[in-house]
Design a protein around this nucleic acid. Sequence first.
DNA 1: TTGTACGCGTTATCAG
DNA 2: CTGATAACGCGTACAA
Lengths: 320, 320
Amino acid sequence: MIGIKDIAKIAGVSVSTVSNVLNGRKNVGKATRERILQICAEQGYHPNIMGKNLKTGRKNTIVFNFSEFDRYFYLKIINGVHDYLKDNDYDLIICTDKSSKNFMRSSFASGAITLDRKLSDDFLKSVSGKNFPIILMDRVIDTEYTKSVIVDNYTVMCELVQALVNKGFKRFGFIGGPDYTLDNKERFAGFEDTLKKNNIPFDYKYYFHGNYREESGYQAVKIFILSHSLPEVLVCANDDMAFGAIRALEENNIRVPQDISVTGFDDGDLAEMVGLTTVSIPRYESGYLAAKELLEMIGGAVNAGPFKFSAKINWRGTVR
Amino acid sequence: MIGIKDIAKIAGVSVSTVSNVLNGRKNVGKATRERILQICAEQGYHPNIMGKNLKTGRKNTIVFNFSEFDRYFYLKIINGVHDYLKDNDYDLIICTDKSSKNFMRSSFASGAITLDRKLSDDFLKSVSGKNFPIILMDRVIDTEYTKSVIVDNYTVMCELVQALVNKGFKRFGFIGGPDYTLDNKERFAGFEDTLKKNNIPFDYKYYFHGNYREESGYQAVKIFILSHSLPEVLVCANDDMAFGAIRALEENNIRVPQDISVTGFDDGDLAEMVGLTTVSIPRYESGYLAAKELLEMIGGAVNAGPFKFSAKINWRGTVR
DNA sequence: TTGTACGCGTTATCAG
DNA sequence: CTGATAACGCGTACAA
């Protein structure tokens, strides 16, 4: 590995001179500067970030963390994070659950954005601090150095269900995600509360515990069919389960939306293609915003409570 | 920031004793060991990764690199990489173009898997070496310490086109990706060679230069329509462009597959949903394999030429 | 069993 | 304008 020493030796100068050139200081002669830059380019030299950070204590690296590989919208979030950080001259490294424990440290990075429910609240609390703020995108922990940036699931779900009620639907079904996810809790709460408000009873035989995967939506409908009773409208906690539900319905010659209406949540690329009525979440923007909030906290801003960004309903063909 | 020195001071021992305890060496008395661990826990001490790596060089971290956020299959590849590395007790960190320059170094990681055409051949060559082998998933550079693991685009495209020829198609169109991507070059070569082999002329007015995005497939068809001539079958270099093409066709009341057939390449989740005839690429497996090859190179194996994994045609409804 | 001295790659300080 | 040297936090010989 070629280091600053090697460059200095080749150029016949001292390491300090090379360092000065590399850091754009003005106290180096033009000829020397150019010769050194030339050599660096030729040798493909890049400063060792370890040595650099060790000395300066300054870091400009942010860790993003996730561990589920079948949620494609993560890439959109990462894209938003990436763009904001790039504009502000921060490096982004993305870790999965295992490596997170090693790199989510203030000695390595200056903050983190996390979207990984495998990381425990305790871990996140213990690792966060004044010089290591954390943005949480999958939960709310209200401490001084952690801030949540999450979807306002509840409000939009209330809107969605209210609109369905207004259309005259009475028998509702719900295909939920795992109970321990905040998203599902909020989405179901909005669903349930709105029905209650409209004095529409919800029969829990129409609740299915899914896992956000297509297959579980498929299973849900198969089970509903086996029990010989289908709701009029099936509200799904995400798109993938809605797709699974639709697949099962089609296989059983139950028409969408003539016989049953279906809604999703996410508005991924497939949703538009398939014509699914769903909730559109500004993923890119949420990542961008999360990064912005993080940098502000690094700059000393204090957590002023969770930030909830709003989502929007996209009405398409799967609702009568 | 509390360091090893502080722990040593509090415990009233030397730093090396603390270091020995932390690294599980046997040369420390039981009482001392326990007292030190106790203090570390109390103080919330974690070794500074920078200092640690500077000395030892991380020996079990792999860098994965990408920089395009709208190619969802990247997550599948990453999933495969992640699983193999996890089983072999390596950490994975994912970098984008900018941070790559900092972290793709033997002083930080022990190898890399790259899928980012923003990284130049020269950069990859210069950074690779005996202590830093690189697996390339987007190009072929044949050096001792870089190995390519790529899709065998050519063979499967030949198969696809031959099958289309056998079905009786004569007027072919091609919507390609960027010329500088290996994928597109190979896919087009397979397309062109097979037509030639069958003495079927290819009219270059039916070639459209796209960019792998849905929109460019849409534009391609709009332009074909404006020129008042459509091919019988439209071979697209990836699924997304095929979707765009289909959207434009539908908007113009041109039926797929009755009026025109369409094929894609990738077999993403949408393809199955939409019923697109396309080429299925084992993404997860390719990531898994890339990781396996990398660890073998780290173990001293030499590059024995590019590894091409084969893809498979999935015939669905968009071909007559 | 514990302590000392040194090196890792870099930057900052200060002397020349 | 340039160079020598001391940090930074940690691991590891080797000495005590």
